[in-house]
Computed example of a mutant assay.
Amino acid sequence: MEIKDSTRSALVRKGNELFNQKDIEGAYRCYLTASYFGGIEKVADYYNFEKKNIIKAMQLYKLIIKEYSNLGGNVRAKQKLDKLCESVAKVLRKWLKEDETFNQDKNKDKLELDSKNTFLPNDYKKNSLEDIMKAKEQLDNKANIVNDKKVSNPLPLNVKKPVFEQIYTNKQKANDKKN
């Protein structure tokens, strides 16, 4: 059903008036009747930023994307919807990481180190690349001293050096993917 321009203008004005009076639902009905998607976007922004009702805001942005393609309004709504979706995804990821029932087997993510590698602190998941390289250097120094027989308590020869190289390689790959 098509409405006259004068009726549409009156509905938009009435919607703006209701919106300023904080009658958001009344304003939404006026904007929807007039097919004024700029007003609907304003209502969606209100739900998003002031009321923090993300679900309602997402529904309205999606309505705008579906119905409105004039003057790039759907592009703005799409950008806002994408940002909301990213925020929701971040929150869900954080909740899942903190959920004890979800993270029952935390050891799968950790690299197992040989118990003889005492130069690397137990909290190796948070170690920086510099800590790992210092630990490798200390191991190399100990191994050289053992080979020169300058130490009375030598380091056991079954220390696995490739673990450090593996950690270094994995860190480098992760950094390359970030860049």
Rank of each mutant, 00 (worst) to 15 (best):
Y47E: 02
N107L: 09
L129I: 05
G15V: 01
C30H: 09
R93P: 02
N153E: 15
L18C: 06
N107Q: 10
K134T: 01
K171L: 11
C85P: 00
Q79P: 02
S35A: 04
R93F: 05
K80Q: 12
S128P: 00
V12P: 14
I55V: 14
L129D: 02
V163R: 15
N158F: 10
Y36K: 02
E137M: 07
F19D: 03
E67T: 01
L60N: 02
Y28N: 02
S35G: 01
Q104Y: 12
A27T: 02
Q79T: 07
K177C: 07
Y68F: 05
V159Y: 15
N127P: 00
N48F: 11
W95Q: 07
Y31L: 03
T33A: 11
K90R: 09
F37Q: 01
N141A: 13
N20G: 07
D148Y: 04
A10E: 12
Y68M: 01
S6T: 12
L129A: 02
K80P: 05
E41L: 13
I24N: 10
E98P: 09
N117I: 15
S6M: 05
A10R: 14
V146K: 09
K22I: 11
Q21Y: 11
A57I: 01
M133G: 00
N147P: 04
A34C: 04
L71N: 13
A10Q: 13
A44D: 03
L84S: 13
K97C: 11
R76C: 07
G39Q: 02
V12A: 06
K106T: 13
S6E: 15
C85Y: 05
I64R: 03
K52Q: 10
D23T: 03
G15F: 01
K149L: 05
Q166K: 13
D99V: 00
K83E: 10
A27R: 02
K171M: 11
E130A: 07
K83V: 06
K125T: 06
S87G: 09
K66P: 00
F119N: 10
T118I: 10
E86N: 04
D131Y: 02
I54H: 12
N20M: 06
S128V: 00
K14Y: 13
K97L: 14
L18H: 09
R76V: 12
N175S: 11
M58W: 04
R8V: 00
K42C: 04
K171W: 05
A27G: 03
T101K: 11
T33S: 11
K56I: 08
D123H: 14
K136D: 08
K106V: 10
L11E: 06
L120C: 07
Y61R: 07
S9T: 08
K94P: 03
L81C: 08
D45Q: 08
Y46W: 14
D45I: 06
K42E: 01
V159S: 14
V43G: 04
S115H: 11
K42H: 04
A44E: 03
K4G: 07
V88L: 07
R29A: 12
I40N: 06
N127K: 04
S152M: 07
K126Y: 15
S69I: 01
N107H: 08
E25L: 10
N147S: 15
N179K: 15
